[in-house]
């Protein structure tokens, strides 16, 4: 689906049948005509001796959930960091809403409306929940923090997401792993994003909370946001995504329409079974 031209041969050829990546270039789950919210092309990133990303492409449209899957070390988090401005790629282009953009700092991504839940959550353990939720975008008046406005907005946000935290004035260090993850996800929803990147958002969550997050992802899609979800749980991925993009060793390994793809085909793309590289 990505790179209609000389798309990554390894990715498309390996999987049998249902992927159909070659043909339907226009069929990115979104509405026809409008440019995709996010379109990255040929992203490369090298860490020392590791080529973490080697010419990766990805497109996400408004109202679409794209799942990004791949084995450990495939480069999923690195791609998320590139799009969110946390790391600067060695090569490649990013277009947002059809216009080429430069995302050199996290601030640039936020300004565009890209919000991210990182795999390592990136919370300040010494600050309380409210402070973490609003970190970097504090409500202010005359240079002073609006403590009450922020606390109120935080309570409303957490309640609307059904996040249960006993004392939102206690430092985040006192929260459980799942609660921290809930805080990180809530944080990503503040301030009207257009694109939400969720890097393994359910990794630390219990059954019920996982279902809630998946439900939340669907609600975001219904609100017209573009969502990228990374997960190792293929059942969750299939339950929530419109398309599945597979990364393998830093390269594209195919993009699949979730509804038309068997679980085996995705697994084969992830593991590279049957691919001769």
């Amino acid at each position: 689906m990505t790179a209609p031209g000389g798309g990554p041969a390894g990715g498309t050829s390996g999987t049998s049948g249902p992927s159909g990546t070659g043909g339907g270039t226009s069929g990115t789950g979104g509405k026809a005509g409008a440019p995709p919210v996010l379109s990255v092309r040929g992203i490369k990133k090298r860490y020392g001796g590791v080529q973490a990303l080697d010419g990766v492409n990805l497109e996400v449209s408004a109202g679409e959930v794209v799942a990004l899957v791949g084995d450990n070390g495939a480069g999923k988090s690195t791609l998320v960091k590139v799009v969110s401005g946390v790391t600067v790629p060695d090569a490649g282009e990013i277009a947002f809403g059809g216009r080429p953009v430069r995302v050199a700092r996290p601030h640039d991504a936020q300004a565009l409306g890209i919000s991210t839940v990182h795999q390592d959550l990136a919370l300040c353990e010494n600050l309380d929940v409210v402070a973490n939720l609003f970190l970097g975008s504090e409500k202010r008046r005359w240079g002073l923090l609006g403590h009450l406005r922020m606390e109120r907005a935080a309570r409303e946000l957490l309640a609307s997401l059904d996040v249960r935290i006993r004392d939102i004035r206690a430092p985040v260090a006192a929260l459980s792993g799942g609660q921290r993850q809930s805080v990180a996800i809530s944080r990503a929803l503040l301030g009207d994003p257009r694109l939400v990147l969720l890097d393994e958002p359910t990794a630390a969550l219990g059954v019920e909370q996982t279902a809630q997050v998946l439900d939340l992802v669907r609600r975001l899609r219904d609100r017209g946001l573009a969502v990228v979800v990374i997960s190792h749980n293929l059942a969750d991925v299939r339950a929530v995504s419109d398309r599945i993009a597979v990364l393998r060793l830093g390269r594209d390994a195919g993009v699949f329409r979730t509804a038309e793809t068997s679980r085996e085909a995705v697994v084969a793309a992830i593991t590279g079974a049957g691919v001769t590289t």
Binding site: P106, A122, C124, L135, G143
Partner: peptide, 25 residues
């Protein structure tokens, strides 16, 4: 320290510089 954004960011950088950076500080 408690009432201004700069003060809060001082705590944030001390708590986790990387988290602060990713928050756009």
């Amino acid at each position: 320290l408690r009432g201004t954004a700069a003060g809060r960011w001082i705590y944030a950088v001390g708590g986790s510089a990387e988290a602060a950076r990713r928050a756009g500080i």
